[in-house]
Write a protein that binds this DNA or RNA. Structure first.
Length: 256
DNA sequence: ATGGTTGCTTAGCAA
C-alpha cells in the first residue's frame, strides 16, 4: 500500500496537476493539506470518477485537509478529539483497511515566541493526546501531514542559517519528538539517514533549483506500521514544472 | 542584500 502526504497549496489551483499525478503514480491513499477550499468546492465527484473516495474538512481561503483513498474511508473525524472549537481546519482522520489515518496541517507559528508560536506548541500537545486515543483503539496508525517542523539539522539545507528559527527551534523539535515518544516512527528515516532530503522549498530566490529546502512534511507510523514500511521517499518531480506547489509529496510504502 | 514569490482576494495578510 502506497501512502502519500502532500501539501497541495490550493486544491483549486492545482486540481489538474493532482489528477494527472493520481493517474500516473496511482497511490492507494493521499493525505492533502492546505486545500484552501470549502467543503462545497471539494472535487468529490471528479475524484470518484477517477476511482478515489474522499473525506475532507475545509474552510474558505486557508488551511483545509483531506484524505483520498482507493478503498473505503470509515469513521471520518474532523477534529483533534477534544471539545475545543477550533475555527482552523487542520485535521481529518478516517480508517482505511483497519488503519487509522490522520491528515494534519500543523500551525506555521509565524515567529518564535509569538502568540501563533504558542498556539502551535499547544496544538502539538492536543495532537499527541488525540493520537494516543487512536492508539487505544488501533494498532495501525499513520499520522501524515505538514508538521511545519524540520525535526533535525539534517532536515535543513543550512542549519546555521536556520538555527533557532521558526520550524527549527528547539521547542518545536521537542514537540515533534513528543510524538515519537508515544511510539510513532518517522518513516522516511527508517530508510534514509542522509541529509539533503527536503519536502518544502520557498518559492523565492531559486530555492528549489539550489535545493535550499526543509523537510517539514512527514509520515509517522505506529510500531506495527513501521515494521511494515518497506520504502519511503520524496517525489521531487512534483516540485518541478509549471505552477507547482511549494511542497513535494512525501510517500511511504507498506507491505500487506 | 532585511530583499524575493505565491495564493486568496483585491490591500494586505499568510506562508
Amino acid at each position: 500500500m502506497k501512502v502519500v502526504s502532500w501539501n497541495i497549496n490550493s486544491l483549486r489551483r492545482r486540481q489538474d496537476r493532482l489528477f494527472e499525478w493520481l493517474m500516473k503514480a496511482s497511490p492507494d491513499v493521499v493525505c492533502l493539506q492546505e486545500t484552501k477550499c470549502s467543503d462545497d468546492q471539494f472535487p468529490e465527484m471528479a475524484l470518484t470518477a477517477a476511482g478515489y473516495r474522499s473525506v475532507f474538512h475545509g474552510q474558505k481561503s486557508y488551511n483545509g485537509v483531506a484524505i483520498i483513498s482507493r478503498t473505503d474511508l470509515l469513521d471520518r473525524q474532523a477534529s483533534l478529539c477534544d471539545e475545543v472549537d477550533d475555527p482552523q481546519a487542520r485535521v481529518i482522520a478516517a480508517t482505511v483497511s483497519g488503519i487509522r489515518i490522520f491528515s494534519i496541517y500543523a500551525p506555521n507559528g509565524q515567529a518564535v515566541g509569538s502568540d501563533a508560536f504558542n498556539y502551535k506548541l499547544k496544538w502539538f500537545d492536543r495532537l499527541r493526546s488525540c493520537v494516543r486515543q487512536a492508539q487505544q483503539k488501533f494498532v495501525n496508525v499513520l499520522v501524515c501531514g505538514d508538521f511545519n517542523v524540520a525535526p533535525e539539522d539534517r532536515d535543513v539545507h543550512d542549519p546555521m542559517l536556520w538555527r533557532g528559527a521558526i520550524m527549527c527551534s528547539e521547542l518545536e523539535r521537542e514537540a515533534f519528538r513528543s510524538l515519537e515518544q508515544i511510539g510513532l516512527r518517522d518513516t522516511l528515516r527508517i530508510h534514509h539517514l542522509e541529509s539533503g532530503l527536503f519536502s518544502w522549498w520557498d518559492y523565492r530566490l531559486l530555492a528549489f533549483p539550489k535545493n535550499r529546502g526543509l523537510r517539514i512534511d512527514e509520515i509517522l507510523a505506529s510500531e506495527n506500521m513501521a515494521a511494515r514500511c518497506v520504502a519511503a521517499g520524496v517525489d521531487r518531480e512534483m516540485r518541478k514544472g509549471k505552477e507547482p506547489s511549494d511542497h513535494a509529496p512525501v510517500w511511504a510504502e507498506f507491505s500487506p
